[in-house]
Nucleic acid binder design. Structure first.
Lengths: 238, 238
DNA sequence: ACCCCACCTTGACCAAAGTCAAGTGCTGTA
DNA sequence: TACAGCACTTGACTTTGGTCAAGGTGGGGT
């Protein structure tokens, strides 16, 4: 029994780690040798809902790659208000900016729900990036996408009001075509308020404003988009 | 004469380009062969104050590396208000995110003053990044730094008021040590207002508020920091 | 089925900041 | 030197949105 456990703890999990790493934006299709090494040096971590992953200002000893669930990256104001930067889902890396620049984490992160991630120690990651240009290219793509996202968040916060931001957010959740459809917010409205940069009360008013205009109707987390054109107009000029 | 001109246009400038590329964050210390190729495929461009470099939404055919002067990257609201994302100085790349992701420029850019840049066509850059891991690493460092900057801009816009943002901005311009010192804004106050995410009127009031508190005194673009501790307090909790 | 608690909504209020308008001062130019 | 134009400031006003307080609602657990 003793021996069997050894094998299970030391070996089976590692093979399994390789297979989950392969389903990751950063590492899929990567040379098996590299995956093996990552698996050997990385660790699988489990988080329950609301559990902290790391805190802003902490030294970054490694990064996480989400396997299951969602991890919210956010900033806190002294008064306790929160601004969500981004919610990361399966396949996405969290904390890689801090690891790359060698500085402390620039924001905090916590699990939104039961989640799993691979933890990769700083040096293991840096070794891989330096040795494997393909990983560097994927990272560049990931960081570029994030910069784009941040730039548009900055634009929203600075130049658009809450209803416009909400309308734009709903449109980004909506599928391309249909004028009328039902979208799932995937988070509570309180969490949504932190993502669009406001408080629950104001978000609620923005929703009822859009509802009064006839653009949407809400039932809990489900939002019925009644008139996409109207919603598009609410997101823009005004 | 004809021949001389040929040489001057076709060759001298290229040698010169190599030498300026060497003074660039992204390319310094790079293999001479690569620099030659960049120089062959790139072009030097000159901008006068307020001249557009590119517009948001335009297809990104290449990127720029600032040699001299400053280039402002910004977003415009439908109503004409502007949010500065970042002002880029000598050595820094502009537009590389669009080139990397193959999507349109996510923001507009224009010269703040007489400026010079190297224009590098998309494919020349991608070739180099793919072939030269060192360039990819530098890019990762640059993008990481920018993400960090953006994250803190998002935090500021969402969670702090204008005086706090102004105080923080002044502190970032100030040198580390001294409690009392004079800093140069390096831009007009109107431009500063776009950088901290407000309008000139509000910025002006924020300045007089800080002045009333005894933290600073302003004389045009020169700001006399009279009490750094006071300024730090104004930047924070409040 | 009931109850509890967290989430959400609404109203009243207030503070922050954008807009509009007027006026001052500085600078570069004719 | 005088003028034009721009940057900046200040005041009055309005709008937006955050805060506080009070209910309503709904889903999960016992």
């Amino acid at each position: 029994m003793e021996g069997l456990h050894e094998i299970h703890r030391g070996h089976r999990p590692r093979l399994e780690l390789v297979s989950v790493l392969q389903r990751t934006d950063l590492f899929e299709g990567l040379d098996h040798r590299h995956l093996e090494e990552l698996a050997a040096r990385g660790r699988r971590k489990h988080f329950v809902a609301e559990q902290a992953v790391f805190f802003e200002g902490e030294r970054a000893e490694g990064l996480y790659v989400v396997l299951r669930g969602r991890i919210k990256v956010f900033k806190l104001s002294p008064k306790g208000r929160e601004q969500t930067l981004k919610i990361m889902g399966p396949g996405e890396p969290v904390g890689e900016v801090a690891v790359l620049s060698g500085e402390p984490y620039p924001a905090s992160a916590e699990a939104l729900e039961t989640s799993e991630a691979v933890y990769i120690p700083r040096q293991a990651f840096l070794d891989l990036v330096a040795r494997e240009p393909e990983v560097a290219m994927r990272l560049l793509a990931a960081l570029s996408a994030r910069l784009r996202f941040f730039a548009s968040l900055i634009e929203d916060l600075s130049l658009r009001d809450v209803s416009q931001r909400l309308a734009a957010h709903l449109l980004s959740l909506a599928s391309a075509g249909d004028s009328e459809q039902i979208v799932d917010l995937e988070v509570t409205k309180t969490q949504l308020s932190a993502a669009v940069g406001t408080v629950p009360e104001t978000l609620s008013r923005a929703f009822s404003q859009l509802a009064r205009a006839g653009a949407v109707e809400t039932q809990g987390r489900r939002v019925h988009i009644k008139d996409r054109t109207l919603l598009e107009r609410a997101a823009q000029v005004k």
